[in-house]
Design a protein around this nucleic acid. Structure first.
Lengths: 205, 205
DNA sequence: TTAATAATGAACACATTGTTGATTAGTCCC
DNA sequence: GGGACTAATCAACAATGTGTTCATTATTAA
């Protein structure tokens, strides 16, 4: 690991800035925030901010990237676990394991997630989240795809599913977050295997 | 209609500003644009901008709202046409009619759409597009839902499908836009009725 | 304890904003 | 075509935020 011990002051300062970012994003959305706002809320000199970040966009990107890295780490840890049987999750009414962990993580960071994925959030972060989803789907399911039986180009299937999953996450965050991570995961798993039409009782089975 | 004749100069000025907006968004993304940039590109005095828009965010919102209104109008026009038979579209390998018109409209305005729905775009516009999708789905399909057979809460079905559709639109805009509006619509229709799993040959039929 | 370095405070030039008031130019309509 | 409106122009303004600097103070690692 390239983790040479970092000065406590730096860690402390960065944490305070990021906490301020979360709070202020809830208050006024990212675009309304100034560097002065951030440092005032964090109780820090304005110049100090520029010791660590180029500007507020740099701050946002670094914060986002840390989240994405953690999610990717999550996915890798569960890689072996899910490789052995893909469809059986559905058969046994069990969700794809990665999803449960994902939703648990979202829950832990809900205030930041709610803003960043909301209508005042950052569309590039949405794209990053979809990318994580896509990687995970490819890893767990792509092998099972019957290329000759595909009714739709593969890239469109991925675009469809990863975006759908993101949409469910967003809906969950916007509403009361009543459903548990497990319930959410089951919703997505059913949708994936049965499809919206069948799930809604539209199509005769 | 509340369309009292508007001074030519106003129409001309507004059109030039909006054209400049599209071009500049492609160049540097919305956030990088200044009012001075816009008026320079539009060959207009900077003060004139403020005669019509409060700030650049106001400009963006007005532009977006016009698009949404047109889409809603499209949807209403086709309302009767699609109400008579919902599932038969799928049986006959025909797409839901609204979708074809939607994709045609996107194609006509592709440069603006590509930026506004892309990673440097506006998440609130994404939300508006999803809202249009949702309304349309409710109008055409919700009646057919067998409430007692629903395997997933209805609001999650809508969140899933509308977001999935948006994702396919985004993927289309980001790639080469090879597929025709009709092909795209068929992709979405198949996904809706068969589901991702079956479409990809994952699930035995 | 000491050498290193992070944080502070104040100041700076610079860019962008949104507004104002006087003037010029284009449009509408009789 | 002429006169009344009013949109567009131009220049200037204060206000706000940006990113950088430099000397000074405070905290940390060892």
């Amino acid at each position: 690991m390239s983790e040479q011990t970092i000065d406590r002051r730096i860690i402390r300062t960065k944490r305070m800035i990021r906490d301020a970012l979360t709070v202020l994003m809830e208050e006024k959305g990212f675009e309304g925030i100034t560097v002065a706002d951030l440092t005032a809320k964090a109780d820090i000199n304005r110049g100090t901010f520029y010791l660590h970040y180029r500007d507020k966009y740099d701050l946002l990107e670094q914060s986002e990237n840390e989240i994405i890295q953690k999610l990717n780490k999550l996915a890798v840890e569960l890689q072996n676990l899910s490789a052995d049987d893909a469809i059986s999750f559905f058969d046994q009414n069990k969700p794809v394991p990665f999803l449960v962990n994902l939703f648990e993580y979202l829950l832990e960071n809900k205030s930041f997630m709610k803003v960043i994925l909301g209508p005042k959030g950052d569309p590039s972060f949405q794209a990053k989240i979809k990318e994580v989803m896509k990687k995970n789907l490819q890893q767990n399911l792509s092998i099972r795809f019957k290329k000759e039986k595909m009714l739709v180009p593969e890239d469109y299937v991925f675009a469809y599913v990863s975006s759908a999953h993101l949409g469910v996450i967003q809906h969950w965050l916007e509403s009361e977050m009543k459903e548990s991570p497990l319930e959410l995961s089951l919703i997505l798993t059913k949708m994936l295997f049965l499809g919206p039409g069948q799930v809604a009782g539209l199509v005769r089975t």
